[in-house]
Simulated assay, not measured.
Amino acid sequence: MRRLPPLNGIKAFEAAARTGSFAAAAAELHVSAAAVSRLVHLLEARLGTRLFERRANRLAATAAGRTYQAGLTPLLDSLAALTAEVVAGGAPRALTIGVGPTFAMRWLIPRLAEFRRLEPDIEVRFATGGRAVPFADGWTCGIALGDGAWPGLVAEPLFAADLMPVCAPALAAGLAGPHDLAGGNLLRVAHAPDDWSLWLAAAGLPRLQARGPEFEYYGQALQAAADGVGVAMGIRPYVDDDLAAGRLVAPFALSLPMGRHWYLLHRPGVDGDAAFAAFRAWLVTAARTAATAPARPCRIGPPLL
Score class of each variant (00 low, 15 high):
P297N: 10
L59I: 14
A161P: 15
T140N: 03
A91D: 11
F115Y: 13
P237V: 13
I97R: 02
G89N: 10
T62A: 02
R267Q: 09
F103M: 15
V133D: 01
P193H: 06
L208H: 13
R247H: 11
A45V: 14
V239N: 06
W199G: 07
P134V: 03
G177H: 08
Q220R: 14
T83I: 07
I300H: 10
M233F: 13
A33V: 10
A149P: 12
E28Y: 08
G148L: 08
G230H: 04
G246N: 04
P302F: 03
A144S: 08
T128R: 05
P6A: 03
P110C: 05
M164R: 14
L175A: 07
L243D: 07
G219P: 14
P251C: 00
A160Q: 08
A70Q: 08
L4F: 01
L95F: 15
L305H: 08
F52M: 06
P294L: 09
R296G: 00
A104N: 05
L163K: 02
A26T: 09
S21L: 06
F279D: 03
L222Y: 15
G98C: 13
D147L: 07
G130D: 09
L59Q: 08
E53K: 12
F22L: 04
E85L: 09
E28D: 12
D137H: 05
I235L: 15
A173L: 15
P151H: 15
P178I: 00
L181I: 05
W150L: 13
P169D: 01
A286Q: 09
G48V: 10
A91V: 09
V284T: 14
A45W: 10
A132M: 06
L181W: 13
G130R: 05
A60H: 12
V154Y: 00
D195P: 15
G9H: 04
R93E: 12
L75V: 06
A190E: 11
F279M: 11
R267H: 10
P151K: 15
T292H: 07
P268C: 00
A144C: 09
L243A: 11
R54V: 13
A244L: 05
G48C: 06
I300A: 05
L181Q: 01
A12D: 02
L153R: 06
L108G: 03
I10C: 08
R267W: 06
G9L: 06
R267C: 01
A182T: 04
L47A: 02
V166C: 06
V99N: 02
A226P: 15
R260N: 00
P206I: 14
P251V: 00
L7F: 15
V189S: 03
G20V: 09
R280M: 08
L7P: 09
L82S: 13
L82F: 11
R267N: 01
L200P: 13
L265M: 11
R106L: 07
L95R: 10
L72M: 12
P110L: 01
D195E: 02
A168M: 02
E214M: 12
L305V: 13
A275Q: 01
R18H: 09
R299G: 04
A293R: 09
P237R: 07
D194F: 01
R38D: 00
F103W: 07
A224W: 15
R260I: 02
F276G: 00
L4D: 05
L4A: 01
V40K: 14
